[in-house]
Simulated scan of single mutants.
Amino acid sequence: MNIQALRDALELQEQAARALADDLREQIDGLQNRLREAETHLEHLAITRTTVTGLADRRPAAAPDLPEHPDHPRILAVFNHATGPRRARDVCQALGHELLPKNVEGTRARLKRLVKLGILIETAAVAVVAVRRCCAAVVSGSVGSSSLPAQLGAGRIEL
């Protein structure tokens, strides 16, 4: 056998192997670039998830819809401006109603209804039942044609 023919055959195989290796290296480089891009995208998604979760945790819970009654938004407005304890009688007076027992009891019933809906919280303290703001819950929406206050107030109501 001719040595030169053997060398030529080896040279051809070597060139083919070198071309294949170069082609594979290019493919690997392309895949590594795509992998870096995918990892960067994953990092951005993780950051976005953390941000959205953090914002969602800060977002106030949605308050339940108020029943249709013109005094409910006004009662919440009384709480919005309250600085201390409020009796049902005080709320009735703040609403501009006459201080008759039927009006005070009607206001007390509406306060109890707001407690039942979870908008106000009722607490007992030394034989006095009080209603205070619901953890600064934001009340949104409207009742009839009047819009609700943005936040419940800081006061309490003694029933």
Rank of each mutant, 00 (worst) to 15 (best):
K116M: 14
A77M: 15
Q93H: 14
D23E: 07
S146Y: 07
A9G: 04
G141Q: 06
P67L: 14
E39W: 06
T123C: 02
R49Y: 13
R74I: 12
L159I: 15
L76I: 02
L159D: 08
V52M: 08
L31Q: 14
L100M: 07
S147V: 10
N33P: 01
R110G: 06
R18G: 06
A150D: 08
L12S: 09
L10E: 05
E105L: 10
P85L: 11
P70G: 04
L117D: 03
A137F: 01
A150L: 13
P64L: 03
L12F: 02
R110E: 14
L42A: 14
H97S: 03
A62H: 12
L55Q: 10
G141L: 04
L12Y: 02
P101E: 14
E26S: 13
R34A: 07
C92F: 04
R110K: 15
R108V: 00
V115Q: 15
R156F: 08
G84V: 04
R89K: 14
H81N: 12
G141R: 10
E158A: 09
R132D: 09
A21Q: 09
C92D: 02
L10D: 02
A124G: 05
H81P: 00
V131L: 13
R133A: 14
S145E: 11
L76S: 11
D90H: 08
A63L: 05
T123G: 01
